[in-house]
Each structure stands twice: as structure tokens, then as C-alpha cells.
Design a protein around this nucleic acid. Structure first.
Lengths: 244, 244
DNA sequence: CGCATTGTTGACAATCGTCAAGTTCGGTGG
DNA sequence: CCACCGAACTTGACGATTGTCAACAATGCG
């Protein structure tokens, strides 16, 4: 008799891939919508073949046309400095929406690329505004998601502006841990979808510093590292480091 | 015969303080609205006595109720780190809207405080959503302003993450110069509304570093400093430093 | 006029970046 | 299946930018 494989849906019934059946609907636009609204939203969602690792959701210069809700996988968004270096502005998990920074622009000003196999729902923006007119709740939810994005970036500014390398790494892990748990991940373990270089880039550090500080956190017994798998051994201490 | 005082409105007719007559309507919500829409917007705007220096627009913990459009003056928004230090997340000029990070929250998560005498228009948010339902263009403009805020914060992340002290200061000045000009300021001069400490806080630097790098830019002939007055002597060079 | 706030300047220290060497891992092809 | 190659990561030594501490000057407000 076989063990059930860990962390895989126990029963995998083939639901039609509607918002109503989506695993992350509690975190995404549909959170507060009723049946009619959901139905309308489903009508405008364009499905796409899942993106493979390194495939772009959109690129700098692409005409802005749609927002993209992440259904599964992970996406990083990054801009370019004037001398052509990448600066990652966010890592995005299922239930989050990317592309909101381009509303009211003609073209996208940042790249969005999949960090693993990733399923996205395309939401044509003019249609979204149109049904938003008829469904106030949808309009409201969209505003909430944009507002949340603003808050998230403000938090990053606070973090980058005031914290040292160790605190940044601790906060980063803590934040990711929290978000992964919201999404039903293992309670004390995460598999990072990004490289050390990406982490460093995001946090305003070099990959060497990331590697060193992660190693230090491990030596202190706060986490355990196995390649990109991070096991949390002392979440209390991790929080304490964030707040120190 | 007296000279006309510089940088003061030449003729100061007492317009009623409607959106239509607002000096920054081209930069604010009303930019694309027609007569009916403007009238409706004016009905919901609550005027307040101008804020004096150091007076709060809203504070952390205040119940979220309204957005605030800045009519004149300047506002800084800042959050608090877990150990109680301030981190400034933005400086806001006339035509900009503060409070959008609290939409969908119960309470404000950051402070907004006037840096000089400042006139704000209070926009009760539920009324704003309500008339947004009837006027798609207003709804669209609001989304654009939120989107712009997301882009602005992304730019800051790119800047803080990748630039050294001198580049940050140069970009900061350049950005402020640009925004002041949009608002009809002197072409090559700005009076900073914030202290060196505020600038450093915002840019993730200490006030000493700000003072030193500003002094260096002056010694290089890029700017001239007189207390908080900055005169631009070589905007080309300033741009070059930002991009270096 | 005096005191508090703000800004400037200097000396020194520390964190983090740079450069470099070496290791592990994963994928590809013989 | 094994060998090889490149990507990703780790670790060490060194240096530079920036922060810290301190003294002092200038400003503005009561």
C-alpha cells in the first residue's frame, strides 16, 4: 500500500477552470463577488497555456491591454535602470495580480516573467472597467488590490531604507512564509522559486551577502537550508530579527 | 513704480475654490472630466482650513474614510518600523492624492503630515466610488492615479536598490525639479520643503551623507545651495549623474 | 538675546560590495 | 550510465562607501 505523496491535492477532480472553482479565489478578485458577478468575470477571463520557467507574462514596451491574475506558480516583475541593470520590484504568488502599474499607460514599463511553471488568467482591462461599471463590488475589489500593491511597495521601501542585510533576509523569508501559508503551503517549509541572485537583487544586496546571511541564520538554528528549500526551525527568532 | 514680486500670481482674482478653477486640475483627478462630472465631483469635495506646517492630514490608526487631494503646499507620508523609527515613503505635491494605500483597509497605516502651509481637498471615498459608478471617466482617472502611485514607488525601489548616495540625491533633485516645473515653479530653482534629515530618511541615507553629497554637487557647479533653496546650474550633468 | 533646531564638517569604524577560487548541482550528449 | 559543462551557490580576503560619533556653525523662533 502506497503512501500518499505529500503536498499534492489528494483528489484531483477536473473542475472547469472557472473563478468559482479557483483554489485562490479567496485571495484574488473574486473574494467578495456573488454568483452573477463571478459569471460575468469568467466571461472575460482569457485562458492561456501555462507559462514555462523564464517565459514572459509581458515585457517592457508591450502595449498595455490586460492585467494578469496568477493562478499557480510564481512571477517576478522587474524594471531596468538607466544603465540596463535589472531591478526586481516584486515576487508574485497565486491570487495576486500583475500589470496594475501600467493602467493608464500605453505600454508596460516593467517585465513580468515566470519563475516556474505558471498559470495566469488574462483580464482585458477595458472589459474589466466596463463590467466594473455594472458591478460596484468588482470595482471595489480591484481598487483594494491596487491599494494593497501600494502598501506592499511602501513596506519594501521601509525595509530597504532602514534595515541591514540580516533583517532584510529575515523579513523576506518571513513574508514569503506567511504568504505561502495563506496559499496552503507546508506550515514550516517553503521552496524558494527564485535564485540567491534574485533575492539579493530584490533586497538591494549582492548574492554573496544573501548566501552568507542565509548561512548564518542556518548556523544559528533559525532555518534549515537544502538548496532552495527553507525549513523554519524557530519562527519566533525570525520575527525577532525582523523587528530588531 | 514697484517691481512685480517674483513667483506670485500676477492677478489674484477670488475664484470660488472649485475643481474647475483649481490651478492643478490638469494634474489631478479632474484632468479628463467634463462639466457634469466636475460639478458632481465638486459636490463631494470637503474643504478644510489650510493645514499649517507639521499638522497631520491623517495619522496611523485613523479610520480610513477619505482620500486627500493636495491643492497647494507639500505633504510627506511615512510609516514606522517595528522599532519605532520613521521611514518616509513619499513627498507629495499639489495635484497628487494621498491616502490611496488605505483603500480597503479599516485604518490608515501611515502618517501624512504637512511640510508647509498646505491646502487639501477631502474626498470621502465611498461617495467617490458611488459617483465613479455613474461616471466611468472619473473611475478611470482614479485607477490611473493609483497606478501612477505604484509606478512611482517601483521607481523608488529601483533607485534605492541600485544607486549610490550621489545618484540618489541627483535623482531626487531631478525628480523634484521636474514635478515643480509641471506645477509652474521657477524653471531652474526649487525651495525644498523638507529638511536634510527628511531627504536622507527618504533616500535610505543619513543626513550627514546628504549634506556632504549636496555640498559636492555644489562644488562641482551642478547646483547652487542657499539653505533649502536649490538653483540648477547644469541640468545636463545632473541627468548624467542619475544615469551613470 | 538665548536656546533649540538645522546643517556642516571631520575622524574613524563597520557593513557590505568586489574579486576570486572552489564546490555542488542539474542537464546534455556521447 | 557516465562524463562533461555551465549555472548556481559557497566561502575567503580585501577595500570602499557610507554610517556613527562628535564638535561646531548658522538659523530661526520665542
Amino acid at each position: 500500500m502506497n503512501q500518499r505523496p505529500a503536498s499534492v491535492s489528494v483528489v484531483h477532480v477536473e473542475h472547469p477552470s472557472t473563478c468559482e472553482n479557483c483554489k485562490v479565489r479567496q485571495l484574488c478578485l473574486p473574494v467578495a463577488l456573488n454568483g452573477d458577478e463571478l459569471e460575468e468575470l469568467d466571461l472575460l477571463v482569457r485562458k492561456r497555456a501555462p507559462l514555462k520557467n523564464h517565459e514572459y507574462v509581458y515585457r517592457i514596451g508591450d502595449k498595455f491591454h490586460s492585467l494578469y491574475a496568477i493562478r499557480s506558480g510564481a512571477v517576478k516583475t522587474y524594471g531596468l535602470t538607466s544603465d540596463g541593470k535589472e531591478q526586481i520590484t516584486g515576487f508574485h504568488l497565486p491570487g495576486e495580480i500583475v500589470g496594475m502599474d501600467a493602467i493608464g499607460s500605453d505600454v508596460h514599463a516593467c517585465n513580468a516573467v515566470a519563475l516556474e511553471v505558471t498559470d495566469v488568467c488574462e483580464l482585458p482591462y477595458n472589459q474589466l472597467e466596463e463590467i466594473g461599471q455594472r458591478f460596484p463590488m468588482l470595482q471595489h475589489e480591484l481598487a483594494c488590490m491596487m491599494s494593497r500593491e501600494i502598501r506592499a511597495e511602501s513596506s519594501m521601501l521601509i525595509m530597504i531604507g532602514k534595515m541591514n542585510a540580516e533583517q532584510r533576509i529575515a523579513c523576506f523569508l518571513h513574508n514569503l512564509h506567511h504568504r505561502m501559508r495563506q496559499r496552503g503551503g507546508e506550515p514550516n517549509m517553503i521552496d524558494l522559486p527564485m535564485s540567491r541572485e534574485d533575492i539579493g537583487n530584490y533586497l538591494g544586496l549582492t548574492l554573496e551577502t544573501v548566501s552568507r546571511r542565509l548561512g548564518f541564520l542556518q548556523s544559528e538554528g533559525v532555518i534549515k537550508l537544502e538548496k532552495r528549500r527553507v525549513t523554519f526551525r524557530d519562527v519566533e527568532r525570525l520575527s525577532a530579527i525582523c523587528a530588531s
